[in-house]
Design a protein around this nucleic acid. Structure first.
Lengths: 210, 210
DNA sequence: TTTTTTCTTGACTTTTTAGTCAAAATTGAG
DNA sequence: CTCAATTTTGACTAAAAAGTCAAGAAAAAA
């Protein structure tokens, strides 16, 4: 048995299966971000992926499993984005600017993932009956923001206050874009985000400072 | 034929029909705010209202018509809330405080309507295929915010800037609550909103002032 | 009272969607 | 090439939801 390095993408058939899975995820992401989760059917997805319906069930147990997978990956990508800086921000203010900018970049580069994340969000506390696995990645995301900003804060600072900050960052970005999509063109959004970001950061610093 | 005052709630049968319609709307609001729009079935609604399924179709053409009705009314109520003050705010800052507070009060007093409004919101620009009527009340809401703040602004001010402000207000409130619902208890939310509101208002004033 | 009109109902038909599985297609081994 | 293993397929069944309508219940008129 050959002990290869990391990726044992053994046979050609397995590679094909992997490609198929990828196609399914891409199609599902497209559809979920256009319609809502509940509104999309399995056939919407397989149709878009140009694959048979049964194929989806070969790769995912059901519709829920695929959306959970997608949300987890999207959170991963957003967090990667957050980790991405040439030189680490020196001040809290700079870090907040960076965070907001990272969200903005993410919403531009990965529009579908952004829409997916901030669409499923509300489902959570509400329909607490199912979809519990969905809550985990969102909490992970909040905790990541907390981790980033807490580097600049006294360790004695109230944990709740940090969480408020994280909610404010996430909420502002998401909320602003949601309404901006209704009320503005994307050109207008682009010119709007910079000055708003500045003042929002300022206000958050004041919030933490006192 | 008796010419009565304003409300010609003529016969008893018609009153009953009106009550039935009200029961349906109440039930639908409850269910829509718990599940999502797409996830609720017509029978969920009539079940909750303790009425026959056919009755809903007597009063509304389909599920879409009832949700549009509810969203329009919810926006009406939110706007009423916004109009509700003992003494008109004297400064822009006071008005912004009032606006944010009105949203907060609305989310407490009319939780279901708040959840409904800020759940359907994302559906809009996205699935532009249907549900166009839903966009209208949201735009009306943004315009109402613009109207309120523009009283305090020079008439020469850039309209886009005012719209940005409206999006920021709506987005901040909505977004913050969305994430707060995941990451905080309602007690924590309550203590969080006040200091955040203060600094947010301050920064918005700066944004407009310059 | 009886008759007529209005409103409500839930069993029914139709449509849509989830999920299954035997067969077909592709791939790997001999 | 042949045959077995793996992956894909779409027609099929089962379940769920939408939407209909003749009949029933309540109210108004006669």
């Amino acid at each position: 048995m050959p002990v290869k390095t990391k990726k044992p993408k053994k046979t050609r058939a397995q590679k094909r299966a992997k490609r198929t899975r990828k196609k399914l995820k891409k199609a599902a992401l497209d559809v979920f971000s256009q319609k809502s989760f509940d509104a999309t059917t399995v056939e919407d997805i397989t149709e878009k992926a140009d694959l048979g319906k049964g194929t989806l069930y070969q790769h995912f147990a059901d519709k829920e499993e695929i959306v959970v997978t997608l949300v987890e990956e999207a959170v991963d990508h957003l967090i990667e984005r957050i980790h991405l800086y040439d030189v680490p921000p020196e001040t809290l203010e700079a870090m907040l600017e960076h965070l907001l900018n990272a969200h903005y970049q993410f919403s531009m580069d990965s529009k579908e993932e952004f829409l997916l994340l901030f669409q499923g969000k509300l489902l959570l506390k509400l329909q607490s009956d199912t979809l519990d696995e969905l809550e985990e990645p969102y909490l992970r995301y909040l905790e990541e923001i907390e981790l980033q900003v807490s580097k600049y804060l006294s360790p004695k600072i109230n944990a709740l206050k940090v969480r408020r900050l994280a909610c404010a960052v996430a909420g502002f970005v998401f909320g602003f874009f949601s309404f901006a999509m209704i009320g503005m063109t994307s050109k207008e959004i682009d010119t709007s985000i910079k000055p708003l970001r500045r003042v929002f950061v300022k206000s958050l610093c004041t919030f933490l400072g006192r």
